[in-house]
Design a protein around this nucleic acid. Sequence first.
DNA 1: GGGCACTCCTTGAAGTTTGAACAATCAAGC
DNA 2: GCTTGATTGTTCAAACTTCAAGGAGTGCCC
Lengths: 180, 180
Amino acid sequence: MNTAPPSGSTPVSASEPAPAAPRWLSDDQQRVWRSYLHATTLLEDHLDRQLQRDAGMPHMYYGLLVKLAESPRRRLRMTELAMDAKITRSRLSHAVARLEKNGWLRREDCPSDKRGQFAVLTDEGQEVLRGTAPGHVAAVRQALFDRLTPEQQKSLGEIMQIVAEGLQPNEAGADLPWLR
Amino acid sequence: MNTAPPSGSTPVSASEPAPAAPRWLSDDQQRVWRSYLHATTLLEDHLDRQLQRDAGMPHMYYGLLVKLAESPRRRLRMTELAMDAKITRSRLSHAVARLEKNGWLRREDCPSDKRGQFAVLTDEGQEVLRGTAPGHVAAVRQALFDRLTPEQQKSLGEIMQIVAEGLQPNEAGADLPWLR
DNA sequence: GGGCACTCCTTGAAGTTTGAACAATCAAGC
DNA sequence: GCTTGATTGTTCAAACTTCAAGGAGTGCCC
């Protein structure tokens, strides 16, 4: 939402520390971008409400429990969990504090590194997942997969893969296309 | 993030007020879903930081200013703005209060409906947009469009259109003359 | 062993979002 | 006019996120 030249405007003054003449998006690209913003905010809101209602937590917190459930001894180091979930350690600390208060996970000291903490999914947390996963999957199917052809699903996967790789802090593809 | 059957588990008990046997996502669909979550959270974070740094406001607030800039007299009724932006009226009230404090928009009473308020973009707000739009567009291009082929862009647009329509409270293409 | 830079995670305050409740106004019917 | 029900936008409190410190521990080098 920001992609159109200031309506009825002249270009930005040419005498600034200019990033050269701005290249606006084409009309088609603007439509795509607006659709993207619409769809992603609506979907995230939808899933947040669904999970808040059925599981008593926001989508992100649910994702943390899922990641723990999929991990070896249902546990992950804080930093690893944060990286997996693409959130800051600070945010994770707050989230884990809340989930711990709910009894859905607990912290454990790391024996080999006294600074370290494990987040461990409790049986109770596991149970919450077991009970709410079907409803959540249904919501995702209904909002997304049931509406897309197999080709579209495949295409969506490829596109999102590309975007994610491009934004990854480090990741393979990084050469030096842009400075910052 | 929630789409895999509880790992190493038996299906949910069949004796509940059951929503029938849950249909999990296929492996391919799970990969797509995870990519989707990765990409969308990374992109939203990226743009939020970019705008917070360069414009001093989060992405959503920026979107509000853009919508006002594109509107007839740079103004929109609160409710209409909220619907356009897909946010609640409450959230909009807070956002507008903050943006008003910044001097980037102001409120005006609606003459025909004493309950109503207009949000009006100020010159100062317009100026902020003019100054930060190029950088924001560049960020969007760099993160998204520059990485996708024209076919992928088209496909993404179609997919997001479908998803958005599916989640829209009502809104179809063709009627409701009272809107707009 | 004493610095020194770094990592791991937490904390507190400020900012944002949510959901429920609310006063004011409108609109329609009687 | 009066009542009822919906709409408009705001407010409060609680929850969540961000950002800037900060305490503790580790690794390394001399």
